[in-house]
């Protein structure tokens, strides 16, 4: 029955859609999990409840307190939705070059926004959030990059949903980001269907972060375990936008730009396989990226813009 008591009951159980048109090899099928169907609009809704529940359970978070989180947008939006319903305040440290729509949605949900220098990317948002947390110990930082409830949410929900709906899955492809989706779904699939390959896709973020002063500023999320991955591709902005357009043109899927990158990575993987089934994550819908001109403007113009704006 499709009747619910709370918007939070609508998180998860997202549809899997055939995207076989995208496969360069007719013997390799590609299915996309439409995480934009979550009520907050992205896959991050899954970890928002899980991380807040975890902080309540271990006594760190109490009614009326303020949650602090560095996020380029989607985690912040998911947390804002949950925090509002549960009676917590939320402060999101957001790079100042994320799409305007992300800022607008965070504001609509009542989050307080602290901007970090966009040139420093997500590294800069993490640094600033850590500084704020030290200065004000009453803030409760959930820290998605190091929070086990991030990957556990995917082990508990996303992974089982994929195996239930697509028991023939051979390969799972998702964006790297905090690595939560890949760690959680990857571990679940490997525990329950040995032989499944787990493939990460990432943007060339380190190339674009102008504010990176030295390699010692590098960052690897504490929850990331390279042993869970079997392969990793970097997908550049131009290719990401081309595949975002293909998702719309060939499959009718209006997705965010990271989904385009993940689809491109899946096609690279499909080209290395004789046959089989790939499941990919479509992390969010295209609504938050309209201002990027990804579907409408000249590809060269959008590509140039994408080197300055954080669309992941």
């Amino acid at each position: 029955m499709a009747r619910y008591d709370s918007i939070l009951d609508l998180v998860g159980d997202t549809p899997l859609l055939a995207l076989h048109q995208l496969s360069p090899n007719p013997r390799v099928k590609i299915w996309g999990k439409l995480e934009g169907q979550n009520p907050g609009g992205s896959v991050k809704d899954r970890i928002a409840s899980a991380m807040i529940d975890g902080a309540v359970a271990d006594g760190r978070l109490k009614s009326g307190m303020t949650i602090l989180e560095p996020s380029s947008g989607n985690t912040g939006i998911g947390l804002a939705m949950v925090a509002r319903l549960r009676g917590y305040k939320l402060r999101v440290v957001l790079p100042d070059n994320v799409s305007i729509e992300r800022r607008q949605i965070l504001e609509i949900f009542g989050a307080e926004i602290v901007l970090s220098p966009g040139a420093e990317g997500s590294n800069g948002a993490i640094r600033l959030a850590e500084k704020l947390a030290v200065e004000d110990p009453s803030l409760v930082m959930l820290f998605q990059y190091g929070n086990d409830n991030n990957w556990r949410a995917h082990y508990a929900t996303t992974g089982p949903e994929i195996l239930r709906d697509c028991p023939e899955v051979d390969v799972f492809v998702a964006g790297l980001g905090t690595s939560g989706t890949l760690m959680g779904v990857g571990r679940y699939l490997k525990d329950n269907k040995p032989g499944v390959k787990v493939v990460a896709v990432e943007p060339p973020a380190g190339e674009l972060v102008q504010g990176l002063r030295s390699l010692q500023d590098g960052f690897i999320p504490p929850i990331f375990d390279p042993d869970v991955l079997d392969r990793k591709f970097v997908v550049r902005p131009r290719e990401s936008i081309e595949w975002t357009r293909r998702l719309l043109d060939d499959c009718g899927v209006f997705s965010g730009i990271s989904a385009g990158a993940i689809a491109a990575g899946a096609a690279k993987m499909a080209a290395t396989m004789d046959e089989g089934t790939i499941v990919i994550v479509i992390p969010d819908g295209g609504w938050k990226y309209l201002s990027s001109g990804a579907w409408t403007d000249d590809l060269d113009v959008v590509e140039e813009r994408a080197t300055r704006i954080n669309y992941w």
């Binding site: 996020s71 380029s72 989607n74 985690t75 990317g121 997500s122 590294n123 948002a125 993490i126 998605q144 990059y145 964006g175 790297l176 980001g177 905090t178 939560g180 990432e202 943007p203 060339p204 973020a205 380190g206 190339e207 972060v209 990176l212 390699l215 500023d217 590098g218 960052f219 690897i220 999320p221 392969r231 970097v234 992941w312």
Partner: peptide, 23 residues
């Protein structure tokens, strides 16, 4: 792949990228 033993062919492009935070 095969880490530093990974084979390269003529015309390949090798990209070096620092690890930074995403998401």
């Amino acid at each position: 792949l095969d880490k530093l033993d990974t084979k390269v062919s003529a015309g390949d492009t090798l990209s070096i990228l620092p690890a930074v935070a995403g998401g």
